[in-house]
Nucleic acid binder design. Structure first.
Lengths: 212, 212
DNA sequence: GCGGACCTCAACCCTCGGTCGAGGGTTGAG
DNA sequence: CTCAACCCTCGACCGAGGGTTGAGGTCCGC
């Protein structure tokens, strides 16, 4: 019953799993007689733990926090400190390599919450909306809106105003269209993969076109 | 003489530095009488070590590899495994969250090296060049070309061909233009900051436009 | 009713990332 | 010249993290 897991990602031993359970990282269900019973979700969780440990060298304590954050609907930054819960003081300036934290998209924020979470003014938010960079769904905004707003705020510090950012919106729309065409209209794993790819391609292209 | 360092980032002790030196992470010069003498570069290095340790939980062994890679003109991935030296076997598929590794731009690759590093065919590379997604400088390609090519290859697996990716190029050109306009024609810290911002903005926008 | 896979719980172990202290040199102020 | 305050090396030690091992017992399929 455990050989299955072992096959899937070599290097997990029974004792390791027991250890991880003792640490509260997984909590598989039990059969009446006390045997562990791993659901698909448990396996997924385990996979996350093992890869985070191997590829990002995160200590279990931190991985545990990430998992907890994910359970609360946030998603952890893909490396490093756990996701900030929306209204962190935000170390000012732009320490290279700091990322803004990636929040789940199934977050619902009021306009005021968005404004505070992103640390921007109402005025800037107005402009962002009028240029279509941030859009409300109903009268709520999602986690991505925070990220957009933060990026725009940082641009603003360099004197780049929302209207200069319109082309970003256009490009993003087109790419989202392409992705939807390829991955289908429902948001699936494939959609996410393609989106990740698009972002990577884009990043590399921009870099390659900067002055030497 | 060491109080200076201690003041700069509390939590570094003399013994810690000695330890780090013993591990080969820093190698300060010595005075005639054997005292350590820290150059600005040593301090910078130290700063890198301490922040990587604190913010990314990297083990010293890995930090050491990063430093070595940086000394060789590569730049480490901003979290996780050290930069891949061009021709890694590359685990196939797209394990979520795996990043492609970011190589320095001052890398010079022949066409064949690029092809192999990205794991693509000559044909695909031809197409990428003809659509302007990858361009040679002189007759060499840089590290970003690898990233572009890898992303394109991954897209290809989803049936997305280079010609579908042209809009990415257009968008990237425009953004690079904006950045250059704001940051000036020489590549500086500011250029990098803005590029990072552009990529983040873009990523958030694409996500926000995907189907729910 | 026996062999193999599973359970628990406590003890043990190794590696990492340092700290401590003994024993000794350097420097600079008085 | 001396004394205090640093600095040096080198080996012993240490605490936390991340498991492993083993003893003693339960559960299941044949």
């Amino acid at each position: 019953m455990l050989q299955v897991l072992q096959a899937e990602f070599a290097d997990v031993t029974i004792s390791k799993i027991r250890f991880l359970e003792a640490e509260g990282l997984v909590t598989p269900a039990r059969t009446a007689s006390g045997y562990r019973k791993f659901s698909a979700a448990d396996v997924e969780r385990l996979r996350y733990v093992l890869t985070a440990q191997r590829d990002q060298y995160l200590p279990l304590k931190v991985i545990k926090e990430h998992l907890a954050a994910m359970d609360r609907g946030l998603r952890p930054t893909p490396g490093g400190k756990p996701a900030a819960p929306a209204n962190v003081p935000e170390t000012s300036g732009l320490p290279i390599g700091e990322d803004f934290g990636v929040l789940g998209t199934d977050l619902k924020l009021t306009r005021a919450e968005l404004r505070d979470a992103a640390g921007i003014t109402d005025e800037l938010l107005d402009q962002l909306e009028s240029h279509g960079l941030v859009v409300a769904r109903g009268n709520h905004y999602d986690g991505d809106a925070i990220l957009v707003a933060k990026a725009a705020a940082a641009f603003a510090q360099y004197g780049v105003e929302p209207r200069h950012l319109r082309p970003f919106r256009t490009a993003a729309d087109r790419e989202a269209g392409l992705i939807e065409q390829v991955a289908g209209p429902r948001r699936t794993e494939k959609t996410e993969d393609l989106a990740a790819l698009a972002v990577r391609l884009h990043a590399a292209l921009v870099r390659s076109r900067l002055p030497r």
